[in-house]
Protein backbone atom coordinates (compact mmCIF):
# COMPACT_ATOMS: atom_id res chain seq x y z
CA UNK A 1 0.00 0.00 0.00
CA UNK A 2 1.30 3.46 -0.91
CA UNK A 3 0.40 6.95 0.19
CA UNK A 4 -1.59 8.92 -2.33
CA UNK A 5 -0.18 12.33 -3.33
CA UNK A 6 -2.50 14.20 -0.93
CA UNK A 7 -1.55 11.97 2.02
CA UNK A 8 2.11 12.38 1.20
CA UNK A 9 1.72 16.15 1.04
CA UNK A 10 -0.03 16.14 4.43
CA UNK A 11 2.68 13.92 5.94
CA UNK A 12 5.38 16.28 4.63
CA UNK A 13 3.63 19.33 6.05
CA UNK A 14 3.19 17.64 9.47
CA UNK A 15 6.90 16.84 9.50
CA UNK A 16 7.72 20.45 8.53
CA UNK A 17 5.67 21.60 11.52
CA UNK A 18 7.57 19.11 13.70
CA UNK A 19 10.91 20.41 12.37
CA UNK A 20 9.96 23.92 13.42
CA UNK A 21 9.01 22.69 16.92
CA UNK A 22 12.34 20.79 17.06
CA UNK A 23 14.43 23.85 16.18
CA UNK A 24 12.59 25.82 18.89
CA UNK A 25 13.20 23.07 21.50
CA UNK A 26 16.88 22.80 20.59
CA UNK A 27 17.20 26.59 20.80
CA UNK A 28 15.54 26.78 24.20
CA UNK A 29 17.80 24.05 25.65
CA UNK A 30 21.05 25.40 24.23
CA UNK A 31 20.05 29.06 24.73
CA UNK A 32 20.81 30.01 21.16
CA UNK A 33 19.07 30.08 17.82
CA UNK A 34 19.06 27.09 15.46
CA UNK A 35 18.20 27.45 11.81
CA UNK A 36 16.91 24.77 9.47
CA UNK A 37 19.31 24.47 6.53
CA UNK A 38 17.37 21.83 4.65
CA UNK A 39 14.43 19.56 5.18
CA UNK A 40 13.13 16.99 2.74
CA UNK A 41 10.91 13.93 2.72
CA UNK A 42 11.43 11.31 0.04
CA UNK A 43 10.67 7.71 -0.67
CA UNK A 44 14.11 6.19 -1.07
CA UNK A 45 15.61 2.80 -0.32
CA UNK A 46 17.53 2.77 2.97
CA UNK A 47 20.67 1.61 1.17
CA UNK A 48 20.79 4.86 -0.78
CA UNK A 49 20.62 6.96 2.37
CA UNK A 50 23.39 4.88 3.91
CA UNK A 51 25.58 5.26 0.83
CA UNK A 52 25.05 9.04 0.99
CA UNK A 53 26.01 9.05 4.68
CA UNK A 54 29.02 6.77 4.00
CA UNK A 55 30.78 9.77 2.44
CA UNK A 56 31.26 11.30 5.89
CA UNK A 57 33.64 9.12 7.92
CA UNK A 58 34.10 11.53 10.84
CA UNK A 59 32.81 10.36 14.23
CA UNK A 60 29.34 11.47 15.27
CA UNK A 61 27.33 11.15 18.46
CA UNK A 62 23.90 9.82 17.56
CA UNK A 63 20.77 9.07 19.56
CA UNK A 64 18.25 6.62 18.13
CA UNK A 65 14.62 6.20 19.18
CA UNK A 66 11.92 3.82 18.13
CA UNK A 67 8.22 4.20 18.70
CA UNK A 68 5.67 1.75 20.02
CA UNK A 69 4.17 -0.83 17.63
CA UNK A 70 0.92 1.11 17.02
CA UNK A 71 2.72 3.83 15.13
CA UNK A 72 5.98 2.37 13.81
CA UNK A 73 8.75 4.87 13.14
CA UNK A 74 12.38 5.58 13.98
CA UNK A 75 14.04 8.88 14.74
CA UNK A 76 17.82 9.40 14.79
CA UNK A 77 19.65 12.60 15.69
CA UNK A 78 23.30 12.98 14.75
CA UNK A 79 25.79 15.56 16.00
CA UNK A 80 29.45 15.86 15.01
CA UNK A 81 31.74 15.19 18.00
CA UNK A 82 32.67 18.87 18.14
CA UNK A 83 29.03 19.92 17.83
CA UNK A 84 27.98 17.45 20.53
CA UNK A 85 30.54 18.95 22.93
CA UNK A 86 29.40 22.50 22.14
CA UNK A 87 25.74 21.59 22.69
CA UNK A 88 26.60 19.80 25.95
CA UNK A 89 28.50 22.83 27.27
CA UNK A 90 25.65 25.19 26.37
CA UNK A 91 22.96 22.97 27.90
CA UNK A 92 24.77 22.13 31.14
CA UNK A 93 26.46 25.50 31.82
CA UNK A 94 23.90 26.93 34.29
CA UNK A 95 23.80 23.77 36.39
CA UNK A 96 25.82 22.48 39.33
CA UNK A 97 29.30 20.97 39.46
CA UNK A 98 27.62 17.61 40.13
CA UNK A 99 26.38 17.66 36.54
CA UNK A 100 29.61 18.83 34.91
CA UNK A 101 31.63 16.16 36.77
CA UNK A 102 29.38 13.36 35.48
CA UNK A 103 31.11 10.55 33.54
CA UNK A 104 30.12 10.37 29.90
CA UNK A 105 28.44 13.77 30.09
CA UNK A 106 28.40 14.35 26.31
CA UNK A 107 26.64 11.05 25.54
CA UNK A 108 24.16 11.52 28.37
CA UNK A 109 23.36 15.12 27.44
CA UNK A 110 22.97 14.35 23.75
CA UNK A 111 20.62 11.50 24.73
CA UNK A 112 18.41 13.85 26.76
CA UNK A 113 18.51 16.72 24.26
CA UNK A 114 17.69 14.33 21.41
CA UNK A 115 14.81 12.83 23.38
CA UNK A 116 13.11 16.22 23.56
CA UNK A 117 13.87 17.11 19.93
CA UNK A 118 12.69 13.70 18.66
CA UNK A 119 9.36 14.07 20.47
CA UNK A 120 9.00 17.55 18.96
CA UNK A 121 9.40 16.32 15.39
CA UNK A 122 6.67 13.68 15.71
CA UNK A 123 4.30 15.87 17.78
CA UNK A 124 2.29 17.30 14.88
CA UNK A 125 2.00 13.87 13.25
CA UNK A 126 0.70 12.25 16.45
CA UNK A 127 -1.74 15.12 17.03
CA UNK A 128 -3.18 14.77 13.52
CA UNK A 129 -3.94 11.09 14.15
CA UNK A 130 -5.15 11.79 17.68
CA UNK A 131 -2.58 9.31 18.96
CA UNK A 132 -0.09 9.25 21.79
CA UNK A 133 3.24 8.06 20.41
CA UNK A 134 5.76 7.17 23.08
CA UNK A 135 9.38 6.89 21.99
CA UNK A 136 11.88 4.53 23.58
CA UNK A 137 14.65 5.82 25.83
CA UNK A 138 17.62 6.99 23.71
CA UNK A 139 20.11 4.52 22.30
CA UNK A 140 23.26 6.67 22.08
CA UNK A 141 26.01 5.52 19.70
CA UNK A 142 29.31 7.02 18.58
CA UNK A 143 30.80 6.40 15.14
CA UNK A 144 30.67 7.46 11.48
CA UNK A 145 27.22 8.62 10.31
CA UNK A 146 26.33 5.56 8.24
CA UNK A 147 27.41 3.16 10.99
CA UNK A 148 25.33 4.81 13.72
CA UNK A 149 22.33 5.08 11.40
CA UNK A 150 22.47 1.47 10.25
CA UNK A 151 21.08 0.13 13.53
CA UNK A 152 17.90 2.19 13.20
CA UNK A 153 17.28 0.73 9.76
CA UNK A 154 17.77 -2.89 10.85
CA UNK A 155 14.08 -3.70 10.96
CA UNK A 156 13.63 -2.66 7.32
CA UNK A 157 14.53 -4.56 4.19
CA UNK A 158 16.88 -1.91 2.80
CA UNK A 159 16.19 -2.71 -0.85
CA UNK A 160 12.55 -3.78 -0.87
CA UNK A 161 10.65 -1.93 1.87
CA UNK A 162 9.17 1.36 0.73
CA UNK A 163 10.46 3.76 3.31
CA UNK A 164 9.75 7.42 3.74
CA UNK A 165 12.79 9.26 4.94
CA UNK A 166 12.67 12.76 6.27
CA UNK A 167 16.13 14.26 6.46
CA UNK A 168 16.64 17.55 8.27
CA UNK A 169 19.83 19.58 8.70
CA UNK A 170 19.96 22.27 11.40
CA UNK A 171 22.80 24.61 12.32
CA UNK A 172 23.64 26.96 15.16
CA UNK A 173 26.02 29.73 14.18
CA UNK A 174 26.77 30.67 17.80
CA UNK A 175 27.76 27.13 18.74
CA UNK A 176 29.27 26.25 15.34
CA UNK A 177 27.31 23.02 15.67
CA UNK A 178 25.12 21.14 13.26
CA UNK A 179 22.47 18.52 13.85
CA UNK A 180 21.15 16.00 11.33
CA UNK A 181 17.83 14.42 12.00
CA UNK A 182 16.47 11.38 10.19
CA UNK A 183 12.90 10.14 10.55
CA UNK A 184 12.13 6.75 9.04
CA UNK A 185 8.58 5.52 8.43
CA UNK A 186 7.43 2.42 6.64
CA UNK A 187 5.22 3.80 3.87
CA UNK A 188 2.78 0.87 3.88
CA UNK A 189 2.21 1.16 7.64
CA UNK A 190 1.71 4.91 7.33
CA UNK A 191 -0.75 4.50 4.46
CA UNK A 192 -2.75 2.06 6.60
CA UNK A 193 -2.82 4.60 9.44
CA UNK A 194 -4.09 7.30 7.08
CA UNK A 195 -6.79 4.97 5.80
CA UNK A 196 -7.90 3.76 9.25
CA UNK A 197 -7.99 7.27 10.66
CA UNK A 198 -9.84 8.55 7.59
CA UNK A 199 -7.54 11.56 7.63
CA UNK A 200 -7.85 12.06 3.87
Amino acid sequence: MELNPKSRQLFTSLIEEGVSRSADALGKMSRTEWGVISSSTNEIPAVRLLSWFHRDKTPHVAAGFESDKDFPLEVVLLFSEKGAKAVTEAVTKPFSERLRRMDDLVRLTIGEVSNIVAHSIIGALADKFDRTVILSVPDVRVGPKAEVLEKSLERYDGRNDAILLSHVEMFSENLAAECSMVLVVNEAALAELFERAGVL
Binding site: R21, A25, N115, I116, A118, H119, S120, I122, G123, A126, D127, D130, R131, T132, V133, I134, L135
Partner: peptide, 12 residues
Protein backbone atom coordinates in the same frame (compact mmCIF):
# COMPACT_ATOMS: atom_id res chain seq x y z
CA UNK B 1 7.57 15.87 33.33
CA UNK B 2 8.04 14.93 29.70
CA UNK B 3 9.43 15.96 26.32
CA UNK B 4 6.26 14.57 24.76
CA UNK B 5 4.01 17.52 23.86
CA UNK B 6 1.30 15.53 22.09
CA UNK B 7 -2.24 16.73 22.76
CA UNK B 8 -3.66 13.33 23.70
CA UNK B 9 -1.03 12.69 26.36
CA UNK B 10 -2.21 15.42 28.73
CA UNK B 11 -5.81 14.13 28.76
CA UNK B 12 -4.59 10.57 29.19
Amino acid sequence: VTGNDQKTLEAK
